[in-house]
Simulated scan of single mutants.
Amino acid sequence: MVRNTARTAKPARAKKSGPVVRRPEVRLPPLEPYDPEGGGLEPDGDYDGLEFKEVDLAGQEGAGSRFMDCALRECGLDGTELARARFIDSVLSGVRGVGTDLSGASLRDVEVLDARLGGTQLHGAVLERVLFRGGKIDYLNLRNARLKDVVFEGCFLSEADFGGAVLERVEFRDCVLRRADLSGVRMTDVDLRTVAELDIARGLDRLAGAVISSAQLLHLAPAFAAQIGVRVEDMP
């Protein structure tokens, strides 16, 4: 016999569905202004507690550098060499540039706000607790990168390449994800439900480990059918 306990049972608390992504909590200390007349970035440089404001860093060599508690605001990054650089507890706001090289870089507790970038190289990089908010990033190369606790919020990503990357607790919130390459991706707790435009060019079969909405499922149904060799035809 099943008893009706609705009158005495306490109401269950609503649980948030989907993965819980740990966002960065960047609290910058008072910053010293960076002096662009000091010779520019240097390979393996050490930058601590500095504000780079409206500085043109185009073409400069900062490979292997460390940026701790720094802010880069409205800076130009055309062709800037930052391979293997480390950004820790830092903010990149309004940065712009084409061909910025951040291959093999490490970003931990970093906010990237309203960036306008093209062809940014982040292949082999490690991103942990990183927020991308706003802006537009074209041809982002994240091949073989590792992303953990990363949020893309309100940004436009065109032809992003995630080939071979590992994504764990990654959320795409209110984004446009156009012509994305997911070839060889491994996903764990990846939330795509609020993506405004979900367009996958390659790697549709790599969505295991992601959560999508029912509307997105209907949108992707023809591609899923084609993936497994099913023809969908209406009766004459």
Rank of each mutant, 00 (worst) to 15 (best):
L107Q: 09
A85M: 07
L177C: 08
N144L: 06
Q60E: 11
E74A: 14
Q121P: 02
G163A: 13
E74T: 13
S183V: 11
S158M: 11
E74R: 12
A145Y: 08
L102S: 12
V95R: 04
L77T: 06
V151R: 07
L131E: 10
A58V: 00
R66H: 09
V130P: 02
E168H: 09
G79D: 04
G124K: 10
G104F: 06
V166D: 11
R169I: 05
D138E: 15
D101V: 10
S158Y: 15
L157H: 11
A85K: 08
L57N: 05
K148L: 05
R129P: 02
L77H: 03
L122A: 00
S183H: 12
V110Q: 01
V185Y: 04
R129G: 03
R173I: 10
E81N: 09
A85C: 04
M187Y: 04
A115G: 08
D189A: 10
R169E: 09
P43H: 00
V170T: 06
F162Y: 09
L77C: 07
D161R: 11
F156D: 14
L50F: 01
V151F: 03
E74L: 14
R96L: 09
G124T: 04
M187H: 08
L107Y: 05
G124L: 07
R73F: 13
G164F: 01
K53A: 13
L182W: 10
Q60A: 09
K136A: 14
D56F: 02
L102E: 04
E74W: 12
L113H: 06
L113W: 13
D69F: 15
L92N: 10
F156P: 01
V185I: 11
R186M: 04
Q121N: 12
G59W: 00
G64P: 04
E171W: 13
P43S: 08
G154Y: 05
E61F: 10
D44H: 08
M187V: 12
A165W: 01
C75F: 02
G94Y: 05
S65C: 03
E168R: 13
G119I: 05
G184L: 07
Q121E: 13
S65Q: 04
K148E: 08
G64D: 04
D89P: 07
D101E: 07
G59I: 03
R129L: 07
